[in-house]
Amino acid sequence: MTNFPGFYRSSIGKKMIVALTGVILMLFVIGHLLGNLQIFLGPRWVNDYAQHLRDLGPLLWAVRITLLIAVFLHIYFTVSLALDNRRARPQGYEKRNYIKASYASRHMVVSGLVVLAFVVFHLLHFTGRKFNARFPMLKNDPLNHYDVYSMMVYGFQNVYVSAFYIIGLFLLTLHLTHGTSSFFQSLGLNDKKLTPQLAFGARVFAWLLFIGYTAIPVAVLLGLIHPAQQL
């Protein structure tokens, strides 16, 4: 009766896919942060790390494709759920007074789409090395690795870019304050006792990520980190 097609067409199946892909993306966000934080350890660490990733070759592409599929499914099913939800209440309320539903939980689609826009920009910015006249001028570091370190510092020295990063990260955080505890619920991995603890944990986790990520542009803007090569 219910086979796999039935599953991904059902309300619960769809949200489980959203949750599972969310977990993948969240793991990436954690890993990505750990990699980036190496900037505080000096150019050597970050540049080595970046080279290391590039050396993975096909494996890197496997990860990238997985992430791409995850992003696609995450968005596709969320939008499909959101459209269902819109249809489920054609006549809205005159007055609405939420008790428990948080701002974050009610605006996942919006926060998610802004994050998507941010990610696109971010990929073009640092992976595609766009929007900055200095990026093409960067020379390799002494070990002949691409100087990611300096690229990041030059990138964030632009106040507008950094501000956009911080806004994007803020929305990602908002998204994750709800999303992180939500996937436990969607996958049925919690109970009455665990739910409030998970909700608290999720908020702590999301804000730690925020602090970790924003530390980099903030540090650059405050002049605590300098480029490894002057241009």
């Binding site: 219910t2 939800n85 249809r87 489920a88 428990k100 539903a101 939980s105 969607s186």
Partner: peptide, 17 residues
Amino acid sequence: VRQMDAEGFGNCTNTYE
């Protein structure tokens, strides 16, 4: 669950309202 979906209810987004 199939009947619930067929009735046209929305989906849970874990808002706990």
